[in-house]
């Protein structure tokens, strides 16, 4: 598996319906990190076949200019998902998003179908991500996250999840708190990424920003989006600021210098620092580099 591709930057994942060709012909102009090309909920039941043809031709003929192409397939309880995978893999998608993932076994069933399609169409390295949309899925997150080496991440689907909890989505998001926390913990323990649910109220810019900031603070890698105008806010929040980059640079440098001098604990800008801060600072710099705001030679000083 291509590890660089698996761990790429995914701050923004934009949903687009494959039922409408006009939506998927040039969405790279909005600059998302990933596209979620949807064959599931955004496609009417009697248009599933036509949407697959539209998806296949788009994948084959449109240059998405490096933007990742993830296909959301229909649930494993439908008659569509196997053909969804064949069309997606034949087209050369980068990854498959499994809808309504309930268990590690769901991931393995999709992985087997993807491998079969790769053999049939001469493809390789198709990645997976799993969307969790039920209480059972949330409780099985630790197993789901470790189910396949192809799995790059897990995502929360808040709408269906709250229905399963017999409640509704609120502005505070209190009903999602447990699932969000468990998702971040399970993903980090398995070494994969995690993505927060969509924010459906397009008119509430303030509420959206607050939710994105909370998602970053909780440890999510990015967020699923339903409209291109949500992208700049997500990128701004999930990209380290100049101040954060400068501090991380200083921490890395100081730790490396002090370690060579045999000093374990010291202060940077008045804050106590030891070796435990090293991975976090390195991660900040890697994220900044991937987001294009920090040069590879580290020359921001």
């Amino acid at each position: 598996m291509n590890e660089e591709k698996k761990h790429r930057l995914r701050r923004s994942m934009l949903f687009l319906s494959c039922q409408r060709p006009g939506l998927i012909q040039d969405p790279y102009v909005y600059g998302p990190d990933s596209l979620l090309l949807d064959l599931e909920d955004a496609v009417a039941e009697n248009q599933k076949d036509a949407a697959r043809h539209t998806l296949f031709r788009a994948l084959r003929q449109i240059d998405y200019r490096g933007v990742e192409r993830v296909v959301r397939i229909n649930g494993l309880d439908t008659p569509h998902w196997r053909e969804d995978i064949r069309a997606s893999v034949a087209g050369g998608c980068d990854a498959i998003r499994i809808a309504k993932t309930e268990s590690a076994d769901d991931v393995l069933r999709v992985e087997a179908a993807v491998k079969a399609a790769e053999r049939e169409f001469g493809r390789q390295d198709t990645l997976l991500m799993a969307a969790v949309e039920s209480a059972r899925g949330v409780l099985n997150l630790p197993d789901i996250c470790r189910a396949s080496s192809r799995l790059f991440g897990v995502a929360l689907s808040g709408g269906d999840y709250t229905k399963d909890l017999q409640t509704t989505l609120s502005k505070s998001g209190v009903e999602l708190a447990g699932a969000r926390q468990l998702m971040v913990i399970a993903a980090r323990a398995a070494g994969i990424q995690c993505f927060d649910t969509v924010y459906p109220d397009l008119e509430d810019a303030e509420g959206f920003r607050r939710e994105v900031e909370n998602a970053r603070q909780m440890g999510f890698d990015g967020k699923s989006l339903i409209n291109p105008r949500q992208i700049p806010v997500v990128h701004q929040v999930f990209t380290p600021s100049r101040k954060e980059i400068a501090y991380a640079q200083k921490v890395v440098r100081e730790i490396e210098e002090k370690r060579a001098a045999g000093i374990g604990v010291f202060t940077v800008d008045g804050k106590m620092i030891d070796i435990a801060f090293y991975p976090g600072a390195k991660r900040t710099l890697a994220l900044a580099r991937a987001a294009g705001v920090y040069p590879a030679d580290g020359g921001l000083d």
Binding site: P21, Q25, D49, A50, H53, T54, F56, R57, A58, R60, Q61, I62
Partner: peptide
């Protein structure tokens, strides 16, 4: 105003339908 890929997709979908 469909792109080539959309024309191909719609023709193919109609034929298979």
């Amino acid at each position: 105003g469909a792109l080539d890929c959309t024309l191909r997709a719609r023709v193919t979908a109609a034929v298979y339908r």
